[in-house]
Write a protein that binds this DNA or RNA. Structure first.
Length: 605
DNA sequence: ATTACCATGATAGGGATC
DNA sequence: GATCCCTATCATGGTAAT
């Protein structure tokens, strides 16, 4: 739902000053007086150092103990945000366990395994003062914390302290660590992949009791030197992927795979006597608030099981919108909504091309057997292509030979072309896409044509989503408060509105200004009685803001959104990097915010 | 083997601004 | 006329399921 994230994220990459400021207050309790003197001075920190610092401060700012954050980064490699977060989240799952700070002795020891990779340079454990001397230890810890806060890796900082001595000038320590960092960077690619799956277990051993409630995490790759991954050539990338695959085979076997249902009907279709599916949600998954997450069904292997794991182990509901409209749209939805007594949106839209676009019937050749469109995409077929097709067909008086038919059909399926004249095909018009996706006519009108295609190609199919959301109507007869993340052109809002569910307060977060404008004008045109709060960046949804919304709205009833699919979708041949991808990693913002809302609402209860 | 896929990057041209 | 921004056009090929 975030078509323009790629463009605008460029300008957002380092636009975090204000947020850091906010976090400064929340972190301050755990920080040592005076350490902010060095923050941002820039002189001492290398680029990798400062990015590392940002990651640490963000995780810490959200309530993870610094020691654990550092450990998680060490375990997973600084590039592997996803794994770091996963490691940290493992402990939030134990939220109800008694809280104990890590034993003091654990602090220095916890770095031991991390420093193993550098043991050949220096023997950390042989240094004096590791045990017994508490004063020295705390001084050492302070220095360690200071250096880590400056952006250096904890194991390197520890080694520098041990090697150069606690009384050494900071400059000497930082010099030492710069050298160590350079040595380590060569190792980074390997560690990025090899530590993906064993990080949790390792941390679990080190912190068997310690748990924390976190409220913020920041899994953006943008903290790191841009496109480090892309520097890998194709062979290397394939090797890496093979490496992941072979590791998975060895470790998780088949449990990592989620099978896509065939037919892709989810937990049941309207007006079909489908055997009623019973599901029991994991205890931790039950609301309030209700949540609803969406993304493409066909992702790289293991992505959906990972998404499911982050969303409290709720099983995804895979649905193809071809059962709801005349176009396919294979999507996975993870939600904690009841699944009984759903009802479809009325009127039921036409399910075939011929009924949806009756004017095309006249020109539709008998050998084009399509009755439904493929997934509506963000791009359309080119004018040159339709021209080539026309020329290929014009050579034949009546029916073209099979090979020409095959070529034309292939292109028609690929680009969802419609017959609009004799030998003449054309891509769908934006308003036709609006209709097929369940939006009001001219919903996206007024912006450039390409932007309309982009926005529509990235949006919900309203009838499908509305069918799932329909259970909310009886639950909230007086209306609902909605937190809508990655709102796009407002598919969720339109669905709820069309269901007749009053929208009391809607907080909509959407990066694209044109999309925000679309939702805004829809809101006004439909005379909404509630209030609409618009935000641009999910990363600016801080604990403070959520708290503010919760206190003024009395809680959210629904948290809904589909995070960017750019790096998951099969159409992306350039950067299909999975959940770690530049845009798709914003998924972690979704769970971050959802968890924030959940934990705060539980606290208020 | 075939098929489908919420795409990306390079490029060119129109229009506004200086 | 030089430059920038916006828009449109086009070619491009990898993954996983069937």
């Amino acid at each position: 739902m975030d078509p323009n994230g790629s463009e605008e994220s460029d300008s957002l990459d380092w636009n975090t000053e204000d947020e850091l400021e906010i976090q400064e207050t929340s972190v301050s309790a755990s920080r040592i007086p005076g350490q902010e003197v060095n923050r941002g001075s820039g002189e001492t920190s290398s680029s990798s150092g400062s990015s590392n610092s940002k990651v640490i401060s963000h995780f810490v700012g959200m309530g993870f103990p610094q020691i654990m954050v550092v450990k998680a980064i060490e375990e997973n490699g600084e590039d592997n945000i996803e794994a770091i977060l996963e490691t940290l989240l493992t402990y939030s799952a134990l939220e109800n366990s008694p809280r104990e700070p890590p034993p003091a002795s654990t602090d220095p020891c916890s770095f031991d395994s991390a420093s193993n990779s550098l043991d050949d340079v220096s023997d950390v454990d042989s240094s004096p003062g590791n045990e017994g001397n508490k004063d020295h230890l705390s001084e050492k810890d302070k220095m360690l914390s200071l250096l880590v806060d400056m952006g250096y890796l904890a194991d390197e900082a520890l080694m520098a302290i041990d090697t150069c001595g606690l009384d050494s000038p900071i400059a000497e320590l930082t010099d030492f660590m710069c050298a160590a960092q350079m040595a380590k960077e060569a190792d980074a690619h390997f560690r990025e992949f090899s530590h993906e799956d064993d990080g949790d277990a390792h941390l679990r051993e080190l912190f068997p009791e310690d748990v924390t409630s976190y409220s913020h995490a920041r899994p953006r790759n943008d903290y790191f030197p841009r496109d480090k991954k892309r520097k890998l050539n194709k062979d290397e990338r394939q090797k890496s992927r093979r490496h992941i695959r072979s590791e998975k085979k060895q470790t998780d076997e088949d449990e990592d795979m989620l099978n896509l249902p065939n037919p892709m009907v989810g937990f049941g279709l309207p007006n079909e006597p489908w055997p009623m599916v019973h599901r029991t949600l994991p205890e931790d998954a039950t609301g309030p608030p209700y949540f609803y997450y969406e993304n493409v069904a066909l992702t790289p292997k293991g992505v959906w099981s990972k998404i499911s794991r982050f969303l409290y182990d709720v099983e995804p509901e895979f649905v193809d919108s071809k059962f709801f409209c005349a176009a396919a749209r294979k999507r996975g939805y993870i939600h904690n909504l009841p699944i009984h007594n759903r009802c479809p949106l009325l009127p039921i839209p036409p399910l075939t091309i011929q009924k949806a676009l009756p004017s095309s019937k006249k020109w539709w050749p008998s050998w084009d057997s399509r009755t439904q469109f493929n997934c509506l995409l963000t791009c359309i077929g080119s004018a040159k292509l339709t021209d080539r097709i026309r020329k290929a067909l014009e050579k034949w008086d009546d029916e073209p030979p099979p090979n020409v038919q095959k070529y034309v059909l292939e292109e028609c399926r690929r680009w969802n072309l419609v017959w609009v004249g004799r030998n003449k095909v054309a891509p769908l018009e934006p308003d036709e896409m609006e209709m097929l996706l369940g939006y009001p006519t001219d919903h996206t009108r007024g912006i450039s044509r390409t932007d309309r295609y982009k926005a529509l190609g990235n949006s919900f199919q309203v009838d499908t989503v509305a069918y799932h959301l329909s259970v909310l109507k009886d639950l909230f007869p007086s209306g609902i408060n909605v937190l809508s993340l990655f709102s796009g052109i407002g598919g969720a809002e339109v669905a709820l509105h069309r269901l007749g569910i009053p929208l009391k307060n809607v907080v909509s977060v959407e990066i694209s200004e044109t999309n925000r404008n679309i939702l805004h004008s829809w809101w006004e045109q439909t005379n909404q009685q509630g209030s609409l709060v618009e935000m641009a960046d999910v990363q600016q949804v801080t604990a403070q803001r959520v708290e503010q919304w919760l206190s003024s709205f009395g809680g959210f009833d629904l948290v809904i959104g589909g995070s960017p699919c750019n790096n998951l979708a099969g159409g992306n041949r350039v950067s299909r990097d999975g959940l770690e991808g530049k845009q798709s990693s914003l998924f972690f913002e979704y769970i971050r915010i959802l968890d924030l809302v959940r934990s705060m609402m539980r606290r208020y209860r």
